[in-house]
Design a protein around this nucleic acid. Structure first.
Lengths: 177, 177
DNA sequence: TTCGTTATAGAACACTTTGTACGATTATTA
DNA sequence: TAATAATCGTACAAAGTGTTCTATAACGAA
């Protein structure tokens, strides 16, 4: 990839996320992004077809560091759910500066959609832990939803609670037989 | 209130909600609302200062029937939480046609904010039921978030489960000592 | 029914935003 | 250095925004 492309892409990303922290997604104009990023109009459209696709790209890049790219050697596939949750929270806290703005802003909608998709995959592997007499899709939805809400709450509280403690709280909330 | 005002207001509401079901909130233009409602441009702005305030008004009117206006004689203030949840779900199902479109659309963000605010008030009164060793604000957030997610799931499932059964499932998910 | 009041329609307006196009310029890579 | 590719800046038509104005028509009270 051309250095200029990288530079432009990064400038747009930074500008966009800076704006996302200040105002709502749908109130941000392409013009503002261009001005903030100090990039030519045609250049922006050469990189991103629409504002929505830009948000897509930003979300993808944020989650890459949390779910896909996992270099931690101490996390195996045979870990229990609580450890996995704790580990995910640990990564989220490491990305704190990058995540809080976009997640806590009014623009967090799409972000949450991505987040829940990833969480669904993780929880599906551990459904057997929850031996509760409710429909399986209800169970999965409840776990994913409440965990996503928990993370949002955690960020609003400035992540005062440790990842381990938060994962413990979360597990405590639901009966595990 | 003048009959003409009522008529115009209703026409705008109907048009707006019809559009909300078809496309995302931030992709809807005032022009489209005007065309759909068959109302003059200046008339729209005489009623609503901005598109956001219109959405506010629509949300308010939707929740009025669920939380504020409660004519059911069989629901007292001394009811237990599960009964209250069941009762709320019953009202939501009664408003099914009015709610599903806006809640399941991509425009459901603001709607959910309203919903959670009302839920918070309800759950706060029943926190003592959940005798779990977690911070109180964590507990409240978890309950509100997971219940909101549950309702969304329920709507997507076309409300096949009965309100009583759904409230039971929800209570089962969380330890009550 | 009559009459003053009030909401609406419709047009005009300046302004912003959008998405595209083009040639000139500059940076990159080989 | 030379070919390549990205960027800039400008221009442009189209659409949307929010306001103002006047004529019209519907309203509510006497």
């Amino acid at each position: 990839m051309d250095r200029r492309q990288q530079k432009t892409r990064k400038a747009i990303f930074v500008a966009f996320r800076s704006l996302l922290e200040k105002k709502r997604y749908d109130h941000i104009t392409v013009q503002e992004i261009i001005d903030e990023a100090d990039v030519g109009r045609s250049t922006f459209y050469a990189h991103f077809e629409t504002k929505d696709l830009l948000l897509d790209a930003v979300c993808e890049s944020l989650f890459y560091h949390i779910f896909e790219n996992d270099p931690c050697p101490w996390v195996g596939q045979d870990k229990d759910l609580q450890s996995k949750l704790s580990h995910t929270l640990w990564h989220i806290r490491a990305e704190k500066e990058n995540l809080t703005g976009i997640l806590l802003s009014d623009s967090g909608e799409l972000f949450m959609r991505y987040f829940k998709e990833h969480l669904k995959i993780m929880f599906r592997e551990h459904l057997s832990v929850f031996n509760i007499d409710v429909p399986e899709d209800f169970l999965l939805n409840h776990l994913v939803g409440s965990f996503a809400e928990t993370v949002t709450w955690w960020m609003k509280e400035d992540m005062k609670t440790s990842p381990e403690k938060l994962a413990e709280y979360f597990m405590k909330m639901t009966e595990t037989h």
